[in-house]
Amino acid sequence: MQESNNNHSAHLLEVEHLKQYFTVGGETIKGVDDVSFYVDKGEVFGLVGESGCGKTTTGRAIIRLYDATSGNVYFNGQRIVAGTGDLREALKAAKKEGDSAKVSRLKKEIAEAEYDHKHCKRDTITKIQMIFQDPIASLNPRMTVREIISEGLVIRGVKDKDYINKKVIEVLDMVGLLPEHADRYPHEFSGGQRQRIGIARSIVMEPDIIIADEPISALDVSIQAQIINLINDLRKNMGLTILFIAHNLSVVKYFSDRIAVMYYGKIVESAPSDELFAHPLHPYTRSLLSAIPLPDPHYEKTRQRITYTPALDSDNSQEPEDREVSPGHIVRCTEKEFEKYIKELGV
């Protein structure tokens, strides 16, 4: 029952109304609350926001480290994540109303979603790889570099030792490490080299898309630039698509073609990166941009930080919705704010 819906194969990765809730001590925490975006082939999509806003959770829900509460994720036109939370709610409501046609339709949809979620092909999923934030915690200390890098291949069923070896050496070379490093253990490497191993592990599977979750924030300054350049080179040489999650806005700006800003589990604004930095519209985006420290002492002396208080700075009279103010520039706002933004852009 694999769905081959043409609507979803336009983009490489499409996230549709993704929700990820957690239950902590009887309370429901909305980690990700109705997030939709898409990533096209070959582009870098940046996801920024303060800690706890749900950007990492989004990444993890996409590669199915969590079971999504609700919403769908399509990859190459195939549904790889399908949550049923909303459908079940709708089903309950429909049952109460006694709308039998709707009930049977929803039941069918739920069954389809469950089937898709369960029977998602492994080959598809391995085309999505992740680079983690902490290079120390994300490498198994008891495995050699060769084992770490080849683990994915082995799981996929590759048995040819020579092929594996060749492949490992090839990716080590690509990330700037030497063949003899393959037999060492992670603790023998410096932080930057460890992150290179993490990157090698992700590219050995020849992925279509890499989810890079704060890949440089745990590294030393002089090493950060090396890793940034490395990811950038790989992207060009391999034609990689990257979902880049970070809180350092200068780096995100440097990397990304499009950027989405997250705030409390929701995407409040998304736009091409130059457009976002030139015309930030949502008050939260403005406050975020005003907080970036720049290596310019004179500018820093005059920099004014804008604060964002949802109760004051946003129009709370009605539920905000995603609206497109200019091509590709989407802001979550109410009707009134929308008109205001259009006016601002016009001038």
Binding site: V221, S222, Q224, A225, Q226, I228, N229, N232, L249, S250, V251, K253, Y254, F277, I292, L294, P295
Partner: peptide
């Protein structure tokens, strides 16, 4: 080695 908001070129990594 660190990009700022205007940086477009390849970084000079150490």
């Amino acid at each position: 080695s660190m990009p700022d908001l205007q940086t477009k070129e390849k970084l000079e990594a150490i």
